[in-house]
Amino acid sequence: MTASGSPATLPPFQQLLDEHGRDVLGFLIASVGPHDAEDCFQETFIAALRGYPRLKHAGNLRSWLLTIAHRKAIDHHRAGARGALPSGSAEEVGGALGGSDARLESAGDEEIWTLVSVLPPKQRSAVVLRFATDMAYRQIGDLLDCSEEAARRSVHEGLKTLRGEPV
């Protein structure tokens, strides 16, 4: 866990599970709902384990895991499984935050899912990464394959919707 970009001295995989398992689970619960998060969690870590020895550098393994988790969440949405669609309309959930983001910051994983399930997938991922895993906008952009600015916009638009403000 020293300087990023250092040549591969990969830590034992158990360390990834111990240090980042909860974040990955939190992200997945918020992305696909508590019911399907377990399957996605296993898919994520099996995929990670499979590719791990070929990883070129040990810098930011957390982002790497969340990238895989994000892909698994997208696969899950594409498969049209339960939880793929927002569970409520913006009007129903609108104003959930009551003009403050404090509730989002202190919310549990399942609570976040309830709050953000109304958002379109990309905004949902952006908001979740920002609040459930405390990730920087630049990294969110890398992970969602968009610019830092676009990531910031997605988070802000998502928050506006959650506050019940017009987007």
Binding site: P12, Q14, L17, G21, R22, L25, E38, F41, Q42, F45, I46, L49, R50, G108, D109
Partner: peptide, 30 residues
């Protein structure tokens, strides 16, 4: 919440280990 999540992580970990072993991905167990 932490207690429940801890339990959840243990359970998830067990499922993961069983599958890793099945798929030949558990190179070293300790």
């Amino acid at each position: 919440r932490n207690g429940r999540q801890g339990y959840e992580m243990d359970r998830l970990g067990e499922g993961l280990l069983a599958r890793a072993e099945r798929e030949g991905l558990l190179d070293v167990a300790y």
